[in-house]
Simulated assay, not measured.
Amino acid sequence: MELITGKRPVDPEFGDSVDIVEWVRRKIREFEPLTNIVDKNVGNCRHVEEEMLLVLRIAVLCTAKLAKDRPFMRDIVSMLEEARPRRKGGSDSNDDGFDPASDVKDKPFFSLSPVTDLL
């Protein structure tokens, strides 16, 4: 979560006795656009932001309150592999090198995930 948000584990912005995990959970519960918490220093590229949101989703799963609800490491590796950029080079790609088939822009971020039950 630190890498995605650019925040430290405890930050005055979070409030008293609130760490980064609870801060992110609060943002999700309040339906705040998660693009608001992504580190703006990473760049202003929509595709990078989408990849960061996918990794944030994994981070939320990994920080479930109950250990039994957290994914196994092999599952985390698989999820991270799936979150890799799906950009293509060559003549069949767009000018920006992005594969439109992998665009997750219009897909709900947490709606089909067990994440919402873990918050």
Rank of each mutant, 00 (worst) to 15 (best):
E2I: 08
G6V: 05
G6D: 01
E2F: 03
I58H: 02
R26S: 09
P12Q: 07
V38H: 05
D117S: 10
D99F: 04
R26F: 03
D103A: 00
V24T: 14
F31E: 15
S102V: 01
L118P: 07
E32A: 14
T5L: 02
P9E: 00
E81V: 11
R29S: 15
S78N: 12
K88Q: 10
D19V: 11
M52P: 02
T116N: 01
R29A: 15
K27F: 08
N41M: 07
C62Y: 02
E50N: 05
L118T: 04
I37M: 11
V60G: 04
D19S: 11
E51M: 15
W23L: 06
V48G: 02
V24G: 06
G6W: 04
T5R: 08
G89P: 01
L3H: 02
V55Y: 06
S78Q: 14
N36H: 15
D16P: 14
V115L: 06
P100N: 04
C45F: 01
V60F: 01
L53Y: 02
L56R: 00
F72C: 04
V10C: 08
L80N: 06
D96Y: 09
N41P: 00
F14D: 09
N94L: 14
S78H: 11
N44A: 02
A67P: 03
S113K: 04
A59D: 07
L34G: 12
W23S: 03
I20H: 04
D106C: 02
V38M: 04
R70C: 09
E49Y: 01
C62E: 09
L80A: 12
M52N: 06
V42S: 00
P85G: 08
E82T: 08
V42G: 08
P33C: 13
I37F: 03
R74C: 10
D19G: 14
S91E: 12
R86F: 01
V38N: 02
H47L: 07
V18Y: 12
R57G: 10
R70A: 10
H47E: 13
L61A: 12
E13A: 08
P114T: 11
D92F: 09
